[in-house]
Computed example of a mutant assay.
Amino acid sequence: MPIRTNRGRAAVYRRLWGWPLRSPRHLMGALVFLAILVTALGIVLPKVVGKPQAKAAPPTYGVTISSTAPRPGLAAPGPTSNLPTRLSTPLATPTPTTPNGDAIRVAKDWAAAWVNHPAGITSKQWLAQLKPFTTDEYLPVMATVDPANIPATKVTGEPVVGTAYPKSLQLTIPTDGPKLAITVVSTNAGWRVADYDQAS
């Protein structure tokens, strides 16, 4: 028989709300049912309602990023930037100049010291000959050379200048062994040899 009075409905509601409080067993059953109901709603509701709209992207300061979706068959556009390029002005290329006479003299003196390794000379003595004409940075490299292994004993000709710049000079000096390809640079202490190689 249907309930037609408010008083009857209130009694039914009281019985429903009071049921979980009748015993601990009823309370546990009600809590388990409520947990299952909340979990089910959490799974079903997003599918029924649909995915929420994506949040607006935070503002980007100085950088414009394209958000248009790529068309089928076309590559996605890359982000564009208003930032300046790394090098706004090109680096100046040093221009060749006439060879510096002091640089050539230092190269000749260095080559004369390099070939001067009589029998019995120590590496320390040989390095002391090169020190006045060598950069401080290159001296440790020269300290690894054993003068007994140098296949030349004298300079046999004048230097041949390769390239000359305001602060550096590359030249070749012939010896009775290999030719010496020498690089001389301008330092605070004057012109000094910064590198060499044995050319054929």
Rank of each mutant, 00 (worst) to 15 (best):
T156W: 01
R25W: 05
D146R: 00
Y61D: 14
L16S: 10
A40Q: 11
T156K: 02
P46V: 09
V44C: 06
A76V: 06
K154R: 13
P178I: 03
W17G: 13
A119K: 15
G101M: 11
P20N: 08
P24W: 07
T183I: 06
T172H: 03
K108A: 13
K167E: 12
G162V: 09
M142S: 02
G42V: 08
Y196A: 02
A199Q: 14
T97E: 08
N100M: 02
A69P: 04
P132H: 04
S81F: 04
S81P: 02
R9C: 12
E137S: 08
R4T: 14
N188V: 07
P94C: 11
V106D: 00
W110G: 03
R25A: 15
Q170P: 00
L87I: 09
A111L: 07
V48S: 08
P77Q: 04
R192G: 00
L16K: 12
Q129L: 13
P174I: 07
L37E: 05
L27H: 08
P132F: 04
G42F: 05
L21P: 00
G18D: 12
I65V: 15
T80Q: 08
T187G: 01
P159S: 10
V48A: 15
V12K: 15
A30Q: 03
Y138A: 04
V106N: 04
V44E: 04
T163W: 05
T89S: 14
S200Y: 14
R71G: 09
T85A: 12
T39F: 13
L41Y: 07
R15C: 05
K124Q: 15
Y196M: 09
P46A: 05
M142R: 01
P147R: 01
L91E: 14
Q53T: 11
T163V: 14
R22N: 09
A143R: 06
